[in-house]
Structure formats: C-alpha cells, structure tokens
C-alpha cells in the first residue's frame, strides 16, 4: 500500500507577523477599555470644572452664604475630612485584628463564619446604617458623650474635642462611628486576602528562628501586607469621604466646630444631598464646586497612597 505523505508545514503563507485576528482584536478591546477610563475621568473633571467656575469666581454678595466661595467650602471640606479620619482611626485597627483572626488564628470553620458575617455587613444599604445611626446609635451615645464631656472638662485639647454634648447624639463622632462600621468590611476583606497570601516559606523561616506566632506575624505578615493595608485603608477612606446617605441622616448639620460630640459640622456629600434638589443657578454651581473640591481631595488621598506604596517597592517582596 502506497504511503500518503503530507508535506511538512511551511513557515510562510500561514498568516503573517502581525499575528492572528483574535490577538489584535483583544489588543484593541483592552486598549479601548483603558482609554475609556481616561475619557470618563476627563469628562467628569471637565463637567465639574465648567459648572464650578461661576461660583468660584462670584463675589460674596452673589453667593448663598454671603461669604467668598473658599470660606463656604473650607468648613465643609474640613468636616468631611474629620468624619473620615474618625472612621479610619476606629476602623483600621479593628479591621486588621479581625482579618488577622480570620487568616491566622481562628480554626477553619470559625474563620469562614466570621468571613460571611463581615460580608453581610457590606451588603447592608447605607440608608439603613444612616437610619440606625440617627434613631438608635445617636441617642444611645448621649450618656457616653455626657460622660466624655465631664471627664475631659479642664483637660487642654480634650475639652475642645469633647465639649458641650449634643442632646440628640447626632454628632460628627456618631457619623464617624457609623462610617467606621460601614468601611469595616471593605478594609477587613482586603486585609484578609493579603494576609493569607503571606508566603509560607517566610512564615516558617521566622518560626524556625525561634519566634512566637505574634513575632512571626510582625516580622512576615505585616511587612508583606504593608502596601496592601495602605491600599485597603485608602479604599475605605474613599468610601468614607464620598459616603452621603448615612452622614446626611446621622449628622444634624451646623457650623464647623472642633467639638466632635456637640451640635455642628457638615460634610460635602451631605451638604450637596440636602440642598441640591432645591438649588438652581449659582447655588447649583456652588454645590457642584463643593463636589469638585471633594473630587480633588479624594484624588490627593489616592496619590499619597500610591506614593507611600511606591516608596517601599524595593523591599516589598514582589521581587
């Protein structure tokens, strides 16, 4: 029987150096997705800037507050930053502790349950948190605030932060606590993901040098996770800065004050949410300009986070 021979495949003729259609198709697709982000960002910035210009350039008499725009927006920005700072300060240590418990201490079944509970926390709508903060947490905290106020009376600095207590409990500290609970799942789940990725090799190296579990965690888990913790906190901070509904409901707005447990303080998102529906003309422009300031703050926070992360790139463990 004659053997049928197939000629060896030829290098030429089966397509060319530009590759297959699928490759170029996906290259274009991913490029388009990348470009789209820039286009969206540019359009949002453009919209915010154009709409803000009338308010930023307007004279004090024309504006709703009767003061120059910067005097109007600065207290709002500070209020936003204070609420977010409280949230981050309260939430970060708790989140890291919970994440560490899940990743390194709890037995498998317990850590799974705790993980689910944390995820459920993330699923609660912010309006529910707001309503709870306004009607339950706030009033419940009134006695605490009264005690804080009494205890810190006469102590320099503290008496400023814990001044005359509010009778409703709808204060910046309450808003900060609610925000802290809201960002807890974000930071926790991020941290957990990073903690469990700590290379076993390094954990064992630390243990083999005669370290306790906690020393091992300090020497391997935390340094390995540092960039990730920064990112997680920034993600939480971004959420806290922009959170509108919960703060709008919890906080009884007022003038900027350092007193965290008294009447006063506003945040940019709540200010916009409360006033935008009835605003028109220059007032609308004022509120959009406040939004622009929030955008700039968030951008700055993210850039600082990037900078912190990049500073340690050489020692990150990625190499």
């Amino acid at each position: 029987m004659a053997q049928t021979t197939t000629p060896p495949p030829s290098l030429l003729g089966a397509g060319d150096a530009r590759g297959r259609f699928g490759d170029s198709f996906f290259r274009v697709l991913t490029l388009a997705a990348g470009v789209l982000i820039f286009v969206i960002l540019a359009l949002v910035s453009l919209y915010l800037i154009l709409e803000s210009l009338p308010a930023i350039g307007a004279s004090p008499e024309e504006l709703s507050a009767g003061v120059p725009f910067w005097q109007y927006v600065l207290p709002l920005a500070l209020g936003t930053l204070m609420a977010s700072a409280i949230a981050i300060l309260l939430s970060t240590p708790v989140s890291i502790a919970v994440a560490l418990f899940i990743s390194h201490y709890a037995p498998a079944r317990v850590s799974k349950t705790v993980g689910y509970v944390i995820d459920i926390l993330a699923a609660i709508p912010s309006v529910v948190f707001g309503a709870w903060g306004m009607t339950t947490l706030g009033p419940a905290l009134v006695p605490v605030y009264e005690w804080l106020s009494r205890a810190s009376a006469g102590v320099p600095g503290l008496s400023l932060v814990f001044g005359t207590p509010s009778t409703t409990g709808r204060t910046l500290l309450t808003a900060g606590i609610v925000l802290a609970i809201m960002i807890l799942p974000i930071i926790t789940s991020q941290c957990r993901e990073i903690f469990i990725q700590t290379p076993r090799l390094h954990e064992e190296a630390a243990l083999a040098l005669g370290s306790t579990k906690w020393d091992m965690i300090k020497a391997t888990v935390f340094p390995f996770a540092r960039n990730g913790i920064v990112s997680a906190v920034m993600l939480g901070l971004g959420r806290a800065l922009g959170e509108t509904m919960a703060v709008t409901l919890v906080l009884a707005p007022g003038a900027l004050t350092a007193n965290l447990i008294g009447v006063g303080n506003k945040t940019i998102p709540a200010e916009i949410a409360l006033n935008y529906p009835e605003a028109f003309g220059l007032r609308q422009s004022e509120l959009i300009a406040a939004g622009l300031i929030l955008f700039v703050i968030t951008l700055a926070v993210n850039m600082v986070a990037r900078w912190i992360v990049s500073r340690y790139a050489e020692f990150s463990g990625a190499n």
Partner: peptide
Amino acid sequence: GMVFQRPNPFPTMSIRDNVLAGYKING
C-alpha cells in the same frame, strides 16, 4: 535552627537585618 529547601531571606529586610532577624523578630 533550620535552613529550607528554597532560599527564603526576608524580602522586606536588608542583608544586615536578615542576619539579625532572629534577634530583631524576638524583640
């Protein structure tokens, strides 16, 4: 003490700190 199959110096530490790791880690 133990030396592992794959070299595993602590990546977040300098060469000097790696040598001192046993002391530094344990405070």
